[in-house]
Nucleic acid binder design. Sequence first.
DNA 1: CTGAAAGCGCTTACAG
DNA 2: CTGAAAGCGCTTACAG
Lengths: 343, 343
Amino acid sequence: MSNPTLEAVARAAGVSRATVSRVVNGSPKIKTESRRSVERAIAELGYVPNRAARALVTRRNESIGVVIAEPTGRIFGDPYFAEVLRGISVGLAAREQALVLVMSQSPEEERRAARYLTGGHVDGVILFSLHGDDPLPEHLKSHGVPVVVGGEPPHGARVSYVDIDNIGGAISAVNHLISLGRTRIATITGTLDMPAAVTRRRGYREAIRAAGRTTDTNLEESGGFSREGGQHAMEILLQRCPDIDAVFAASDLMAAGALSALYAAGRTVPEDVAVVGFDDSIIALSTQPALSSVRQSMEVTGRELANVLLQTIDARDQIVRHVILETELIVRQSTGGPPTRKS
Amino acid sequence: MSNPTLEAVARAAGVSRATVSRVVNGSPKIKTESRRSVERAIAELGYVPNRAARALVTRRNESIGVVIAEPTGRIFGDPYFAEVLRGISVGLAAREQALVLVMSQSPEEERRAARYLTGGHVDGVILFSLHGDDPLPEHLKSHGVPVVVGGEPPHGARVSYVDIDNIGGAISAVNHLISLGRTRIATITGTLDMPAAVTRRRGYREAIRAAGRTTDTNLEESGGFSREGGQHAMEILLQRCPDIDAVFAASDLMAAGALSALYAAGRTVPEDVAVVGFDDSIIALSTQPALSSVRQSMEVTGRELANVLLQTIDARDQIVRHVILETELIVRQSTGGPPTRKS
DNA sequence: CTGAAAGCGCTTACAG
DNA sequence: CTGAAAGCGCTTACAG
């Protein structure tokens, strides 16, 4: 239960506590001999540094807060969250930083989270799935807490972030549909209080206009980033514009819902209606037919979030860093691509 | 950035550090007057106790490790994880305990996790989604780390756990199918290295036998707890036994996959084949038709996990506690129930 | 390259 | 009911 202390290691190795501490922390100016005997003692005793004691003097907690500010049930159905979390976990583990998870689903919980996060318990904070004009990033920053957000930050928040090229991804998806000769291209948007949803819609519109066509809001419907929402949006779109021959959905989950609606309406995919999703998550391969999708690596996003944050903490600066990750269109059967082998 | 210390509060309130500490920790024997002036000073200065300093003396970290030992991609598609996590989060937040998330997907990562968790960094550990004979629970316990596992623990591990009534749930599902007059009832099982999967299959078999019928392994196929797996299992089952008129799937996700396969094979649900899932997760309401399902509250499971662990930590005992939560069959259209209003 | 010593911010017997 | 004091296990100038 009670682990050996530095003191015990020092005694066993015949050196001072300071020397052991230096070895543990990888100080370069240690005689090889001392280092070795210390290392042996550490191994023999199974010494593990006491985090609390270390944190008390270094003022570093070696832990990072990760807040998922998702008030809807989306977190329960969309692989996005688990994948980003996984990436963060990998990025932090490499640096021996603990991941303190904070799930805030209500204003009350967000207040509690803010209190905790500014209480000096963590060295920095990663925020993602932010909605609307969430003040949390600015609030943390103003309290001197290093912050990085996943996705585009709220208006006016001057904080570091890691995002993907949403606009480029959306454009490539729509251009692909256009190149297929589709003329009535609809879009199912995400929750429009999220920047990613707005930006993907903008990409859709830009691509339509760049092709010399006019946009039509009858061809746009929100699916709220959920499967059911996507299905429902597709039903509405079909009713409003029965001649739709292509759909760009801002997430795979919504695209999967759209597929169900199309199927139910007797449309074939991709013959009658071509469908492109976004994310290229595990879902894209599990639909029938497999989904063409804009690939983003959510795990890489997570890893980058961890990297940027740790960099900011190390540098002790207030420099705002932006990382934008590329996307890539993956063509599968839902737009006429070759059959995909199921994994 | 640097928060005020106990010392500062003591000065402001005109008392000693010890008194402030007692107020902060809710000691009963404090004069109301002192308490009040301390409370005012705390509020004015915005004092927040330094966790590290406190942890150093109390030997409590006020944080709990939560490990999700899921090596497969299942974590990315199944709402189960997020919901349990959510419940744990709520349970811990109420007690101001931090949730340190550890995602271990490989033996290497599990070793790292074990090292971290026995290093005295957390006060206790919640483990879930354990596979096979994972030695982690016993390992932690032998190092004196309080542990509670979600679901039935590995064979021989004498640790506390919170589980649901898997066998009762499975029996009620199959009995329901029998009561509908179905005679060829198949089952899609989960990953059979997990106790929940094995137990649900056992419930299926018991119910079949209790009805005076014989079990037939041709009617059993693993769907690996994934949507695709469920779909594939259903395809195999239909091929092997085209006369199947009902299916009990050990998770909603697999049931949703089965629905796709049935649809593709031209079978109607519930007319040709009745389907029951398990979990009653968000998925059950998003399929077409809506799924009958065995309801378990994953959030309650999470909250109970937190409660049992905190109780064990508080009691400083080694008592092994078991909590078994009830399940309830929810009947919807996939077995002929009334239409469900989509949320 | 190494050690003695101060100090990080708390809690908690102990004495009153 | 309250305060003085010791001590939790580390790190880090400082001096050598």
